[in-house]
């Protein structure tokens, strides 16, 4: 089963929840960090790294001998990665989505492909080997998160519980991360910002048709907007995490939720079972 932890708003506690889920289990599990712009689960899981590999994407390479400067490739490109001004096209590889369209429309076969790096995958194990940890990290200067996320997801096995730590927001990287999830936990906070972005996240997950419930972090702070919204929309709130100074202290030194609030371990151990019952 794949459980994705997403949020809408950033900084609500996705990584705290995702890490807690894999730590609470006593079975072999996997943690996949798809928040490739700022992966931080490894700070808390401290995996022993076994392997590092590059994420490569293909970008067009123009053969200026064959190019007739017709500009068809540049007119086709929806991402402005190719620009033709009556000259062989200028290529902006960082804008290319590797769709391959320019090669198809080129009448003289002047376009071939070269590989460029956009990110890095780190594979490791934590908790004496019980937790498999896969992390994607986008290269500095690259803006194409989805190919890195896709490569992270190739390491997800069917036979173990996998927790996906998603990026914040509701844009392409989040959709890519949620793709194969069986269930989504939306982590939010009881503030107007938390509520606003939770609504966007709920709309997204509903369009994708994935069952979900809500976790409210720092539930004893803020206002009742999130709780009221969840009642109105018949959304289950399955966990409420209290606001504790100990949590901030643990977090600041790479500690986890259970270092700060040990009594939450039992509840987190139950979450996968609660989800399985709910989905069935």
């Amino acid at each position: 089963m794949i459980i994705a932890v997403a949020s809408g708003k950033g900084g609500t506690g996705k990584t705290t929840v995702a890490v807690a889920l894999v730590l609470a289990s006593s079975e072999p599990v996997a943690y996949a960090d798809c928040d490739v712009e700022e992966p931080n689960g490894s700070i808390f899981l401290k995996p022993e790294v076994a392997e590092v590999e590059r994420v490569l994407v293909e970008v067009p390479d123009i053969d200026e001998e064959k190019c007739t400067s017709c500009g068809k490739c540049a007119r086709f490109c929806q991402f402005n990665a190719l620009v033709s001004l009556g000259t062989p096209p200028l290529v902006f590889p960082e804008l290319c989505h590797s769709c391959g369209g320019c090669e198809i429309v080129c009448p003289t076969g002047a376009i071939s492909w070269r590989k460029v790096s956009v990110g890095e995958i780190t594979l490791g194990r934590s908790d004496g080997g019980r937790i498999s940890v896969v992390q994607g990290k986008l290269d500095v200067g690259s803006s194409l998160a989805p190919p890195v996320i896709r490569q992270v997801k190739t390491y997800i096995a069917d036979d173990v519980l996998t927790v996906i730590d998603c990026p914040p927001g509701t844009s392409c990287p989040v959709i890519e991360s949620l793709g194969d999830a069986d269930y989504v936990l939306l982590v939010t906070e009881p503030t107007p910002f938390g509520l606003h972005d939770l609504k966007l996240a709920v709309e997204t997950v509903r369009v994708l048709g994935i069952p979900f419930s809500v976790i409210i972090n720092r539930f004893d702070e803020g206002d009742s907007g999130v709780e009221d919204y969840c009642i109105e929309e018949s959304i289950d709130v399955i966990v409420r995490i209290p606001h504790r100074r100990e949590m901030a202290e643990a977090y600041s030194t790479g500690g986890n939720l259970f270092d700060a609030i040990p009594e939450m371990r039992e509840l987190f151990r139950e979450i996968p079972r609660i989800i399985v019952r709910g989905v069935k």
Partner: peptide, 15 residues
């Protein structure tokens, strides 16, 4: 509202 490549498009526009 282009996400990316606005400068490239604008330069083509000017050209």
């Amino acid at each position: 509202n282009a996400a990316q490549g606005a400068g490239i498009q604008a330069a083509q526009n000017v050209a």
